[in-house]
Amino acid sequence: MLKDITLGQYFPIDSPMHRLDPRTKLILLVLHIVAIFLANNAITCGLVTALTLLVMLLSRVPLATYLRGLKPILFVIVFTAVLNIFLTAGTKIELFGYQTPMTWEGLVLAGKMALRLVLLIFASAALTYTTSPIALTDGIEKLLSPFAKLGLPTFELAMMMSIAIRFIPTLIEETDKIMKAQKARGADFESGSLIRRVKALAPMLIPLFISAFRRADDLAVAMESRCYQGGNRRTRLNEIHFAGIDLGATCIFLLFFAVTVALRFLL
């Protein structure tokens, strides 16, 4: 169960997508999401799908991994699709001579919404699979740096984010360990009534919180003892650079975006 979490997991391989500047990827993802929501006819939908597939191909991450990332929101996709099919006004679909409450318009809308959701997940997964959490927070920090002049604590925000991201796998591991230890003492997390199950969580949550506090304390001491001080005067080991490949990617995305926008409003 715990190892099924793939969204937000970095794939440590090398690909053109991995080499892009995280800032480029972040901005282009936002642009691409706008394009996905603007696409409303066959051609524009085809365009955004093609671009998403291209990105997925270039990331060299197996398709199965992308599909696994879809699992948690499969229910949402199916649910909205069903609602759309039944609740949209329009011509009713006839099946075997009977009139059904489904409509053709609803079917089209459902398909479009499902496509958008799937593309949205794929596109954001392509970002998180190819960008390490550290690079991602670096990128976000750099993108937010203009706001630092307005008093936004960008550095601290980025630091908090990278620490939070860094500790997700650690806490998952810890949870797994504690669950196993309590199971070895006869704990049962999977059966019984809802109240029983919530009660059964205490032996897991209390040790987990205690260990999280202990870790936070240790980390704070370790950072302080190495004279950590946030702020702008810190330099980095790995600077991020906007390179030729970023320019190329930006051009491709802008071109697709322009065509999508033009086709949406012209057709």
């Binding site: 360990k177 504690i178 230890a181 040790p207 205690i210």
Partner: peptide
């Protein structure tokens, strides 16, 4: 388990 006191 290892460090069993973490499960108290």
């Amino acid at each position: 388990f290892q460090y069993p006191e973490h499960q108290l």
